[in-house]
């Protein structure tokens, strides 16, 4: 399995006479099977960094290397294919289809890869079972708790068997018990499947589950040494 490597990554936003250094020379290597947590205050550039890695934004400098290629210079179609084939993206916003069951929501990525409905369901159902949603597979999102909905989103990311796991505040809507469950699950999945994982979070609990923890401030990355530093950098109420 491939590692993820960021080399001197730069992304600035320019407005009227103002430049926001969202990501400013970030370098990081996440090995296969490793889960890295990224803390930072609101507006520190965490989400921008995640989108750069996902190929949703293109960097102005530096490289995002995964699977032997630079994600930053892919064409629009190649970038979509990269997300389709390689990336499992877990977002805080669920974006589930209200009228579709948990199973149907979880398979929603697979039509883009040419799967039939039967094939897609066959690939997705084991993930729902693994995530403890087997009994809830036929339920619509409104019939699921927040934690269950989040697990549906995780199942959707994993059903395509990605080579890279990216999670943006995956526990933002959950209570502490569910938060720990989800974090433990993400760590287990990264190790079990030997894929790199990047977790953007405000949650102090992530420290226990991440292999390494970094803090992003003003677009610059540094490895966190203490919990107080991380918690101070990321107030619970704020959002990156």
């Amino acid at each position: 399995m491939s590692a993820l490597e960021l080399r001197d990554l730069v992304k600035h936003y320019r407005g009227r006479g103002e430049t926001v250094r969202a990501v400013d020379g970030v370098s990081l290597r996440i090995a296969a099977g490793e889960l890295v947590a990224l803390y930072g205050p609101s507006g520190s550039g965490k989400s921008t960094l995640l989108m750069l890695v996902a190929g949703l934004l293109a960097p102005e400098g530096g490289q995002v290397l995964f699977g032997g290629r630079d994600v930053g210079v892919l064409s629009a179609r190649q970038s979509a294919a990269y997300r389709r084939e390689e990336v499992g993206l877990i977002s805080q916003e669920f974006h589930l289809i209200p009228a579709a069951s948990a199973l149907d929501n979880a398979l929603m990525k697979l039509p883009a890869r040419g799967y039939t409905l039967r094939e897609a369901r066959a690939r997705t159902l084991p993930w729902l079972q693994r995530l403890g949603l087997a009994e809830r597979a036929g339920h619509r999102p409104e019939q699921l708790s927040m934690g269950e909905r989040q697990r549906v989103v995780i199942a959707r990311a994993l059903a395509a068997e990605p080579g890279l796991l990216l999670a943006d505040e995956p526990t933002g809507n959950l209570d502490s018990v569910r938060t720990r469950e989800i974090l433990a699950l993400l760590r287990a999945l990264c190790r079990e499947r030997a894929i790199p994982g990047l977790l953007v979070t405000h949650d102090p609990d992530a420290v226990e589950f991440a292999d390494r923890v970094f803090t992003l401030r003003d677009g610059r990355l540094r490895e966190s040494e203490s919990e107080s530093e991380r918690v101070g950098a990321a107030p619970i109420a704020s959002r990156g």
Binding site: A76, A80, L89, A112
Partner: peptide
Amino acid sequence: AEQRMQGYDARQ
């Protein structure tokens, strides 16, 4: 937006 994040390209 969601489908783009999931990897659907413009054609799809």
